[in-house]
Design a protein around this nucleic acid. Sequence first.
DNA 1: ACCTGAACACCGTTCAAGT
DNA 2: ACCTGAACACCGTTCAAGT
Lengths: 185, 185
Amino acid sequence: MPRQARISRADVLEATLAIAEERGLAAVSMRSVAARLGVTPMALYRHVRDKQDLLDGLVERLLAELPIPDAGLPWDQRLRAMAASLRATAARHPDVFLMLLHRPVMTPAARRTREAVYDALRDGGVSEELIPRVERLLSTFVIGFAASEAGGRFAMHDRRVLDDDIDAGLQAFFAAVERLATQTA
Amino acid sequence: MPRQARISRADVLEATLAIAEERGLAAVSMRSVAARLGVTPMALYRHVRDKQDLLDGLVERLLAELPIPDAGLPWDQRLRAMAASLRATAARHPDVFLMLLHRPVMTPAARRTREAVYDALRDGGVSEELIPRVERLLSTFVIGFAASEAGGRFAMHDRRVLDDDIDAGLQAFFAAVERLATQTA
DNA sequence: ACCTGAACACCGTTCAAGT
DNA sequence: ACCTGAACACCGTTCAAGT
């Protein structure tokens, strides 16, 4: 007779995120997560394969919460909004955000985000053939920027300086896209 | 009477790098580094403040080994060469490279690298006022790209595709710099 | 001055057992 | 089916002591 499950995978990830927010990612351990759920550490192994899987689940959760901008907005405004969302996520969860670069993320949420960028670039006039490359370059810049902020690489700079940085970067990117679009057309 | 020191900070960092290369960064511990040097773990604390300082030393060592291209080369070729060096370093020491984004690096080696980029941008015609911003945007893109490769974010792509990616990215960057230079002049 | 020994408060994970 | 208890092989770091 199946016992009633006391904890779910969602419970485990929620407890993990709570600990990461309250005491930092370093405080996240199988033991601390279990303690918060009132369960022994080994009980977690039914819901996550190992600690790495726990951390991957955290990254996926963050990505899943990333808002996708309204498709009615102009393509460049959509991309600006996504960049701003990524930076906000990085600011809220710096340690978790940095894990984004530590291992490949190929979850539904990651694909959904990439497709939204593809759509924007298509609307911006980028040819179907070039879209994947242009997306890789843009996402590398934006994720790299957000990760740099999260890791403190830009800690000596004012928030306004960094806002202007990303604006300048995106503006140069949009100019390059427009040139691509006109020369193809 | 001072005893003869048996190990130096350089010895400690070299042993650390050797372990990281042979068994991965996860195998690096105060205890494993000490064991390789034939010493107790506590002996290391004379040469590094704590484990974080040990890891910081590793990053600094890698950055110090980064070649600075010949100043006689054209400015854009110098930047291309530095990007290639960073990618090579990331490929050789993926785990250590990723730490570059985890905390601010403000060592002599980091400053030397940044100054080399400043010089190249100046030779490319970027105004003194804009140089720091343009450097931040370029380094963010290149470090982000190398980190993405190191972390496996591009693992599904062929090496040649990624070579073309960074070429396309740098080319767009150079075009933007040239427009900046002519509109200033 | 430099290193050691012992101890403290932790880790992730496996395995066999309990209900 | 789901969770526990005990154990194994580890961690980083402090403190007092040895030479």
